[in-house]
Write a protein that binds this DNA or RNA. Structure first.
Length: 489
RNA sequence: GGUCGGUUAACCGAGUGGCUAGGUAGCGGUCUGCAAAACCGUUUACGGCGGUUCGAAUCCGCCACCGACCUCCA
């Protein structure tokens, strides 16, 4: 398998040639959501980013096993040990539901939204609550190796001890001494040897709902443990790619590294990939900041921040228009521009399928193809890929206008290229296509268009205009092209 | 305060030591009975100040502003 895919490794801060450990297999682990409220635009970013990665790897011929967790154990609201009510439990109280009902409810909408965004489902989607035993096994291993200690039924990771042999903070560029002086002092930390130590197992207070028996206490696993456990369980002690949002680098991924390294004596992840944030008014969109727009709202337009609804593919295109390591700022203007741009692209696909070949060709499809691959190989540069595709759009439209020509072999090659890059890899599907009524509508439209043509031929413009205007009223636009009349809803 | 990143035209957003990114919007034109679409042409750029260089928006330094992380977060 010849591959020139370079990906930016957050660990080394360099673009590196991607070489899987056991080609043609690729192991990919992604940090999924905590299921306690509706998915928002921010969640769409990693979903689309790593869907692009998965699709491209599949296209290159790799067999990808992707694992994305669902956090359903509930993390503490804060470190205030006494009254720690986790987010899922809190929501469960608010909505008067069982914690697992909350998880189920929001997991379902998450899945629905991601399907709308045309992302491929992960190969395995493990839940933290289903891996309590494995998490406890990992804690035991870490305890055996001497990198954790037990206090009052809770188990904490000994960061200082770990740092003696391995380096803590590698990924996020943090130095332990700085952490020592800068870690915020919180209540309920007196159990820990050091404030930067983190919990592997937490003893539950009596009112805590989500808890499990363990050798140390009735309690629940620590925040970072599930990813260490489930990634290595399904992908092996060492696996290829770990992805997630940049905001997870510290402490989540840092702690994951510490846990896995402490237990296995080596690092588990070969390539770390982090997507940047979606901002709104220049600030990160986050549940905790309350400045988020849910995906359901975006798709329906029902949100005071929105001037209109945006289709899932518009959102997908919007995300793909920026490189995944840049922040992307939300605005209605930007989304409207994305909508128009996507429309231009989809129209060109339809035009392409209608194109009549000539003897000569003024396009170099192999060269275009090469450029498209080069863009993706350069750390998944989707905006550059799109710019190349838009060059092709311009060419396609010019063929219709007669200023460019394409022969049949180039035409087939171009169709294949569009199919590969737009549908298969970028995952931009035609949202209008596919319903059963489509054909009937198409046939009816042909008749109507012919009637209008007859009127025009008779110079009966009032009638032809009437047809066009009435169609306009029900949302159908007619477009008189050189090669015939086209219409769209 | 510490660590890291950003500042590109009306908006979004790439890239780069010398070569028009792209999308959206605007303007002018072609086509059309008219319109829409399409096509062609075109207007606003690289935060500020220095330095390196034949040449810098791109490399270096300083400054300003913005953001992320340091607490759960995609």
């Amino acid at each position: 398998m010849q591959n020139k895919l370079f990906i930016y490794n957050s660990m080394t801060k360099k673009k590196e040639l991607f070489i899987p450990l056991h080609a043609p297999f690729v192991g990919l682990y992604l940090c999924g959501p905590t299921a306690y409220s509706n998915a928002h635009l921010g969640h769409a970013r990693p979903a689309v980013t790593f869907d692009l990665l998965t699709r491209y790897l599949l296209h290159l011929g790799y067999k990808v096993r992707s694992v994305r967790n669902i956090t359903d154990v509930g993390h503490l609201e804060d470190e205030n040990a006494g009254e720690g009510e986790d987010r899922i439990t809190k929501k469960a109280h608010q909505e008067q539901l069982e914690p697992m009902e909350i998880v189920e409810k929001y997991m379902n909408t998450y899945h629905k939204n991601l399907e709308q965004l045309n992302t491929l489902p992960p190969s395995i989607e493990p839940r933290a609550s289903g891996h309590i035993i494995e998490q406890q096994e990992l804690i035991k291993e870490i305890l055996d190796k001497g990198y954790a200690y037990i206090v009052n039924g809770s188990v904490y990771f000994d960061v200082l001890k770990y740092n003696e042999k391995y380096k803590y903070g590698k990924l996020s560029g943090r130095v332990l001494e700085d952490l020592q002086s800068n870690t915020r002092v919180l209540d309920g930390q007196e159990e820990k040897k050091n404030p930067f130590d983190f919990a592997l197992w937490k003893k539950a207070s009596p009112e805590h709902i989500m808890k499990w028996p363990s050798p140390w206490s009735i309690g629940f696993p620590g925040w970072h443990l599930e990813c260490s456990t489930m990634s290595t369980k399904y992908l092996g002690d060492v696996f290829d790619i770990h992805g997630g949002g940049m905001d997870l680098m510290f402490p989540h991924h840092e702690c994951e590294i510490a846990q896995s390294t402490a237990a296995h004596g080596k690092e588990s992840v070969r390539y770390w990939m982090h997507n940047n944030m979606i901002t709104i008014n220049g600030q990160k969109m986050a549940r905790s900041l309350g400045n988020f727009i849910t995906l359901d709202d975006l798709f329906s337009g029902k949100n005071k921040l929105l001037t209109q609804a945006y289709s899932p593919m518009t959102i997908r295109f919007f995300i793909l228009q920026a490189h995944y390591r840049s922040t992307v700022d939300f605005s209605n203007e930007a989304l409207q521009a994305a909508e128009k741009g996507l429309q231009k692209l989809t129209r060109a696909i339809e035009t392409l399928n209608r194109l009549k070949p000539s003897e000569v060709s003024t396009i170099d499809v192999p060269k275009l193809k090469e450029k498209c691959y080069a863009a993706l190989d350069d750390d998944l540069n989707s905006p550059i890929l799109l710019s190349h595709l838009f060059d092709a759009v311009k060419f396609i439209n010019s063929v219709v206008d007669g200023s460019e020509k394409i022969n049949s072999s180039s035409l087939e090659a171009l169709k294949a290229l569009f199919n590969t890059f737009i549908l298969d890899i970028l995952g931009l599907k035609n949202e209008a296509a596919g319903t059963n009524d489509e054909k009937l509508t198409g046939d009816l439209m042909k008749i109507i268009i012919q009637l209008r043509q007859d009127a025009k031929n008779n110079k009966d413009f009032p009638t032809s205009d009437k047809i066009r205007n009435e169609l306009n009223k029900i949302g159908i636009t007619l477009k008189d092209r050189k090669d015939g009349v086209d219409w769209e809803k």
